[in-house]
Design a protein around this nucleic acid. Structure first.
Lengths: 111, 111
DNA sequence: CGGTATCCTTCGCGATACTG
DNA sequence: CAGTATCGCGAAGGATACCG
């Protein structure tokens, strides 16, 4: 992660990090266990491979995601949440998700 | 808040809403009680009035912020978190803030 | 299948000027 | 002091082609 400016509050670091279009969604999709690149690509509607790989790299660097390479052929790589920071950030994302649910109910929105 | 696209998950609504540069910071600054426009402008480094007012309008529409107008002169307006959704969203923001603190400690960063 | 590189477009946001 | 309107730039991100 590149530092973009001088932060005046620890919150700004994390918010700047999560601000992009896809990172929270990627994390959310890893909530129920490891997934491969192509699995992620399939379940995240609208994302393209470039963004997915780019954001996964960021998530790994920030230590919210692990990358596991399995040796041998065919190539197999899996991504999963880290036990520490990954799980913690998911707590926050869960809250946001539940706010979204409420909001949709109140406004008669459907997926 | 204008709907930007078709959402495939309730999380996306809230994330899209919070993605902008300032909303989370504004909410965080309201955590300890109501503030006026100029107070917010002073304590949020780098923001300009246009963005502040624009984001406050969004936050009000999404029912995380209340606007209280006091009658009489001089004009007085205060913004505060709503009891329901405002408090709930702050829970998530608190988690992000604490992740930021950890991250800064680990990497020897200072404000 | 997993990953990198390049080009091009969109739009978030900053600057600035104006109104009640 | 509170709020609205306009304009332009730069970065985020989409499309696409290529490599191991």
């Amino acid at each position: 992660m590149k530092i973009r400016r001088r932060y005046t509050c620890p919150l700004e670091i994390v918010h700047d990090f999560l601000r992009g279009k896809w990172k929270t969604i990627i994390l959310y999709q890893l909530k129920h266990g490891p997934k491969s690149l192509t699995e992620l690509e399939k379940c995240i509607v609208g994302i393209n491979q470039k963004m997915l790989i780019q954001d996964l790299a960021d998530l790994i660097e920030f230590q919210v995601v692990n990358k596991i390479k399995y040796e041998g052929y065919p190539l197999k790589v899996e991504y999963s949440l880290t036990a520490e920071r990954g799980q913690k950030i998911i707590e926050a994302i869960n809250i946001l998700q539940s706010i979204g649910k409420e909001y949709m109910n109140e406004n008669g929105m459907k997926i």
